[in-house]
Measured scan of single mutants.
Amino acid sequence: PEDEKKAKEALKRANGDEDKAKEILRKLGVDPDRAEELLRRLR
């Protein structure tokens, strides 16, 4: 869904750096736990 698209985009923008991607997602208003879960799934 929408969050998943955001997560993929964030990872791309962060050049695969998960911590940076998490930060980006947090700024986009995605719940930190949700962000973590999404990134884990994309790994």
Score class of each variant (00 low, 15 high):
residue 11 L to S: 01
residue 5 K to P: 05
residue 36 E to N: 08
residue 16 G to E: 03
residue 18 E to M: 15
residue 41 R to P: 02
residue 10 A to I: 05
residue 29 G to V: 01
residue 19 D to I: 13
residue 32 P to K: 12
residue 4 E to F: 15
residue 18 E to G: 06
residue 4 E to T: 10
residue 28 L to M: 15
residue 11 L to A: 02
residue 26 R to Q: 13
residue 26 R to T: 14
residue 6 K to H: 12
residue 15 N to I: 04
residue 41 R to K: 13
residue 7 A to H: 02
residue 15 N to P: 02
residue 12 K to Q: 12
residue 43 R to N: 06
residue 3 D to V: 07
residue 8 K to C: 10
residue 35 A to E: 01
residue 38 L to I: 10
residue 11 L to N: 01
residue 19 D to P: 06
residue 27 K to N: 13
residue 16 G to R: 03
residue 14 A to F: 04
residue 34 R to V: 14
residue 1 P to A: 14
residue 2 E to N: 11
residue 19 D to F: 12
residue 14 A to G: 04
residue 5 K to F: 12
residue 4 E to A: 09
residue 40 R to F: 05
residue 17 D to V: 05
residue 1 P to Q: 14
residue 15 N to W: 09
residue 10 A to R: 01
residue 35 A to V: 12
residue 40 R to I: 07
residue 38 L to Q: 02
residue 22 K to R: 14
residue 3 D to H: 05
residue 15 N to H: 12
residue 20 K to Q: 11
residue 22 K to F: 14
residue 35 A to Q: 02
residue 37 E to L: 08
residue 35 A to L: 07
residue 14 A to M: 04
residue 28 L to Y: 07
residue 10 A to Y: 02
residue 38 L to V: 05
residue 43 R to V: 09
residue 12 K to W: 13
residue 28 L to F: 07
residue 41 R to F: 08
residue 36 E to A: 12
residue 5 K to S: 10
residue 25 L to F: 02
residue 1 P to L: 15
residue 17 D to R: 05
residue 23 E to A: 11
residue 33 D to Q: 13
residue 20 K to L: 14
residue 26 R to E: 12
residue 21 A to F: 06
residue 28 L to P: 00
residue 32 P to W: 09
residue 39 L to W: 02
residue 10 A to H: 01
residue 1 P to R: 13
residue 13 R to Q: 15
residue 32 P to Y: 09
residue 2 E to K: 07
residue 20 K to W: 09
residue 23 E to K: 07
residue 19 D to T: 14
residue 16 G to P: 01
residue 6 K to A: 13
residue 12 K to I: 13
residue 15 N to L: 10
residue 2 E to V: 09
residue 12 K to C: 08
residue 42 L to T: 03
residue 26 R to P: 00
residue 31 D to V: 04
residue 7 A to W: 04
residue 23 E to L: 08
residue 34 R to L: 13
residue 18 E to A: 11
residue 3 D to Y: 08
residue 19 D to V: 15
residue 17 D to G: 02
residue 31 D to L: 10
residue 6 K to V: 13
residue 42 L to P: 02
residue 10 A to D: 00
residue 18 E to Q: 09
residue 13 R to T: 11
residue 23 E to G: 06
residue 28 L to I: 06
residue 5 K to M: 14
residue 30 V to D: 00
residue 6 K to I: 15
residue 13 R to D: 09
residue 8 K to G: 05
residue 39 L to F: 07
residue 6 K to C: 09
residue 13 R to C: 09
residue 40 R to D: 06
residue 26 R to F: 11
residue 13 R to F: 12
residue 9 E to I: 12
residue 31 D to G: 09
residue 43 R to E: 05
residue 4 E to Y: 15
residue 18 E to K: 11
residue 23 E to T: 06
residue 22 K to Y: 13
residue 38 L to M: 10
residue 10 A to F: 02
residue 40 R to M: 10
residue 41 R to S: 08
residue 16 G to F: 08
residue 9 E to Q: 11
residue 10 A to L: 03
residue 3 D to K: 03
residue 37 E to I: 09
residue 12 K to E: 11
residue 23 E to F: 04
residue 21 A to K: 01
residue 8 K to Y: 13
residue 33 D to A: 14
residue 13 R to V: 11
residue 37 E to P: 01
residue 34 R to Q: 09
residue 30 V to Y: 15
residue 27 K to Q: 15
residue 14 A to E: 02
residue 15 N to Y: 09
residue 23 E to W: 05
residue 38 L to W: 05
residue 33 D to P: 05
residue 24 I to E: 07
residue 6 K to S: 09
residue 42 L to I: 11
residue 25 L to S: 00
residue 4 E to G: 05
residue 14 A to H: 03
residue 27 K to Y: 08
residue 9 E to K: 07
residue 30 V to P: 00
residue 19 D to Y: 12
residue 27 K to W: 09
residue 8 K to D: 04
residue 15 N to R: 13
residue 20 K to M: 13
residue 12 K to S: 10
residue 39 L to K: 00
residue 1 P to F: 14
residue 38 L to F: 04
residue 28 L to S: 07
residue 24 I to M: 09
residue 20 K to F: 10
residue 20 K to N: 05
residue 15 N to G: 12
residue 37 E to N: 06
residue 35 A to M: 07
residue 20 K to I: 14
residue 4 E to C: 08
residue 33 D to G: 11
residue 20 K to A: 12
residue 5 K to V: 13
residue 6 K to M: 15
residue 17 D to Y: 04
residue 41 R to E: 06
residue 16 G to C: 10
residue 25 L to T: 00
residue 32 P to L: 11
residue 14 A to S: 08
residue 35 A to S: 05
residue 12 K to H: 11
residue 33 D to K: 13
residue 23 E to R: 09
residue 15 N to V: 04
residue 3 D to S: 05
residue 29 G to R: 03
residue 31 D to R: 08
residue 22 K to A: 09
residue 21 A to R: 01
residue 43 R to D: 04
residue 3 D to N: 05
residue 42 L to S: 03
residue 17 D to C: 07
residue 43 R to T: 07
residue 10 A to E: 02
residue 38 L to G: 00
residue 15 N to E: 08
residue 10 A to T: 02
residue 21 A to Q: 02
residue 28 L to Q: 12
residue 42 L to G: 02
residue 34 R to M: 11
residue 13 R to H: 10
residue 34 R to K: 13
residue 14 A to I: 02
residue 4 E to Q: 09
residue 34 R to A: 10
residue 14 A to P: 00
residue 16 G to N: 06
residue 29 G to H: 03
residue 17 D to K: 05
residue 42 L to K: 02
residue 43 R to I: 11
residue 34 R to H: 10
residue 17 D to M: 04
residue 27 K to G: 13
residue 30 V to A: 02
residue 21 A to M: 04
residue 37 E to T: 06
residue 11 L to H: 03
residue 40 R to Y: 05
residue 6 K to R: 13
residue 15 N to K: 12
residue 42 L to A: 05
residue 23 E to H: 06
residue 31 D to E: 11
residue 32 P to C: 07
residue 11 L to Q: 02
residue 42 L to H: 03
residue 32 P to V: 08
residue 37 E to G: 05
residue 24 I to P: 00
residue 17 D to T: 02
residue 21 A to Y: 05
residue 10 A to G: 01
residue 24 I to K: 02
residue 2 E to Q: 09
residue 4 E to I: 15
residue 43 R to M: 12
residue 16 G to M: 05
residue 9 E to N: 08
residue 7 A to Y: 04
residue 27 K to P: 01
residue 30 V to I: 15
residue 3 D to E: 13
residue 24 I to Y: 12
residue 32 P to R: 10
residue 27 K to V: 11
residue 36 E to G: 06
residue 5 K to D: 12
residue 21 A to I: 03
residue 29 G to T: 01
residue 36 E to F: 05
residue 33 D to E: 14
residue 32 P to H: 08
residue 12 K to N: 09
residue 34 R to F: 10
residue 4 E to S: 07
residue 1 P to W: 15
residue 8 K to A: 12
residue 13 R to W: 14
residue 29 G to A: 03
residue 27 K to T: 13
residue 32 P to Q: 09
residue 16 G to L: 03
residue 31 D to T: 11
residue 29 G to L: 04
residue 41 R to L: 12
residue 5 K to Y: 12
residue 17 D to S: 06
residue 5 K to R: 14
residue 4 E to W: 15
residue 5 K to H: 12
residue 37 E to A: 09
residue 11 L to G: 00
residue 9 E to F: 09
residue 23 E to I: 09
residue 19 D to C: 10
residue 38 L to K: 00
residue 30 V to E: 02
residue 31 D to F: 05
residue 29 G to M: 03
residue 36 E to W: 06
residue 21 A to D: 00
residue 11 L to R: 02
residue 26 R to A: 13
residue 42 L to C: 04
residue 30 V to Q: 02
residue 36 E to M: 08
residue 29 G to D: 03
residue 7 A to G: 04
residue 22 K to H: 06
residue 40 R to H: 09
residue 25 L to E: 00
residue 21 A to P: 00
residue 43 R to W: 05
residue 8 K to S: 08
residue 14 A to D: 00
residue 36 E to Y: 06
residue 7 A to E: 02
residue 11 L to V: 03
residue 36 E to D: 12
residue 26 R to S: 11
residue 6 K to N: 10
residue 36 E to C: 10
residue 37 E to S: 06
residue 21 A to G: 02
residue 33 D to F: 13
residue 18 E to N: 07
residue 13 R to G: 05
residue 43 R to F: 07
residue 29 G to I: 03
residue 28 L to G: 05
residue 8 K to M: 14
residue 1 P to Y: 14
residue 22 K to S: 05
residue 11 L to W: 11
residue 25 L to D: 00
residue 7 A to D: 01
residue 16 G to V: 01
residue 28 L to V: 05
residue 42 L to M: 07
residue 6 K to P: 03
residue 16 G to W: 10
residue 38 L to H: 02
residue 26 R to L: 15
residue 22 K to E: 03
residue 31 D to H: 12
residue 1 P to N: 14
residue 16 G to A: 03
residue 17 D to P: 01
residue 36 E to S: 08
residue 39 L to M: 08
residue 30 V to S: 01
residue 1 P to E: 15
residue 38 L to Y: 04
residue 4 E to P: 03
residue 43 R to L: 14
residue 2 E to F: 10
residue 21 A to L: 04
residue 39 L to S: 00
residue 20 K to S: 06
residue 41 R to G: 07
residue 9 E to T: 08
residue 30 V to M: 15
residue 22 K to W: 09
residue 25 L to H: 00
residue 9 E to A: 12
residue 5 K to L: 14
residue 5 K to W: 14
residue 5 K to I: 13
residue 9 E to Y: 13
residue 17 D to A: 04
residue 36 E to I: 07
residue 42 L to Y: 06
residue 29 G to N: 04
residue 28 L to R: 04
residue 14 A to R: 02
residue 33 D to R: 13
residue 10 A to P: 01
residue 38 L to N: 01
residue 17 D to H: 06
residue 3 D to R: 03
residue 31 D to S: 13
residue 21 A to N: 00
residue 12 K to P: 00
residue 5 K to G: 08
residue 19 D to H: 12
residue 34 R to C: 07
residue 30 V to L: 11
residue 20 K to Y: 10
residue 38 L to T: 03
residue 15 N to S: 07
residue 22 K to M: 14
residue 9 E to G: 06
residue 37 E to F: 06
residue 22 K to Q: 05
residue 19 D to Q: 14
residue 12 K to F: 13
residue 19 D to L: 14
residue 27 K to I: 11
residue 33 D to L: 13
residue 39 L to G: 00
residue 2 E to R: 07
residue 8 K to W: 15
residue 34 R to P: 02
